[in-house]
Amino acid sequence: MSTSPSAAVRVLIVDDQSLIRLGFRMVLEAADGIEVVGEAGDGAEAIEATARLRPDVVLMDVRMPGVDGIEATATIARDHPGVRVLVLTTFDLDEYAFGALRAGAGGFLLKDAGRDELVAAVRAVAAGEATLAPRIVRRMIELVTAGQGADAAPPAATGSAGLDLLTSREQDVLQAMARGLTNTEIAEELFLGESTVKTHVGRILAKLPARDRVHAVLIAHGLASPWEHAAEGVQVDGGTRR
């Protein structure tokens, strides 16, 4: 769901502990340009509330009774491709991070993230930017490069599903995305205009095809399949999923 620059980011908070939901609500409601539109105590409630409230961002816990956060994320990503999911958990474990990202989450943060980091993550995910805890980015790179020799080709040059369609510059941008860089940081590193980077990102998403930046990185690393909904006419080049 796209938002205009002046519109508040609408957030649904999902966690099975009411005190944690209250804490998140207090932090987010104190931030400019963010509106908490509802709460849910488990994945089933999150799915229902998303359909009813149509938030821009769902702040999703992982471990919950009944329908957990991974399953709820997958359902929301499938049924409401315009809604972004930001997963938070106390568990710094690969299976939670990659499970959430494969399910369709637009970002992953640990619950010990600071107030400013949480607010920035919500805003970034709403804008279509990738948001990953630094530890998860490092672990992703470690998993991909494990066992590769110094002369091994980088993931974006392997010719896997759709990657051979990328230009050399698009591969450079994808590599930078894989390190968690924002459009501004990519522009500075590659000496490009930010609008040019945004165009490259849009083309990468369309060619793979990928749901968003995080999904593009997972595809490049062989950790996810191309987006099956891309053929259904969901906009990826020019929308908010960058």
Rank of each mutant, 00 (worst) to 15 (best):
G106A: 01
R21V: 11
I13K: 06
K111E: 05
T90P: 09
L28A: 11
G99W: 00
E189Q: 14
E170W: 05
F91A: 13
L110E: 00
P209W: 05
D15W: 09
R123A: 05
P155D: 00
L118M: 09
V27H: 09
A133F: 00
M26D: 14
F191L: 13
A30D: 15
A126P: 01
L132E: 02
P55R: 02
G159M: 03
R25F: 12
I20V: 15
T145Y: 10
L181K: 11
F191Q: 15
L59W: 06
D116E: 15
R21F: 04
K198V: 13
T184R: 15
R203T: 15
V9C: 08
T131Y: 09
E188C: 10
I76T: 06
E228A: 12
A178F: 02
G38Y: 02
E95R: 08
I34G: 06
Q235T: 15
T196K: 07
A77V: 00
S225H: 14
L28Q: 07
D237W: 10
D42Q: 13
M1F: 01
Q148H: 11
I47R: 04
R211N: 08
S6W: 11
A30Y: 12
A105I: 02
G180C: 05
R115C: 10
A103F: 08
A113G: 10
A124S: 06
A77S: 11
S225W: 11
T158R: 04
A206T: 05
E228D: 13
P81I: 00
E228N: 12
A176W: 07
A72G: 13
A44W: 10
A7V: 01
T75M: 10
A161N: 14
P155S: 08
D56N: 14
I20S: 12
A40K: 12
M177L: 15
R54L: 00
G193D: 11
F91G: 05
V122R: 07
V137L: 09
P155W: 00
A31K: 15
A156L: 06
A178T: 03
A120K: 14
E29L: 11
G222K: 00
D116H: 03
G99Q: 10
E170T: 04
A30G: 14
T199Q: 13
R21H: 03
V197D: 09
L59C: 03
T90M: 15
G43E: 05
G149F: 02
I186K: 10
V87R: 00
E117I: 06
A30T: 14
L208Q: 08
F98Q: 02
A124V: 07
R54G: 00
F24L: 11
A49C: 04
M64P: 04
Q171P: 11
E188M: 12
P5W: 07
A187R: 04
R179C: 11
T131I: 01
G162T: 13
A51C: 04
Q17Y: 08
A153T: 02
V122C: 04
D112L: 07
V236I: 14
L132H: 05
A130D: 02
S160C: 03
G104K: 01
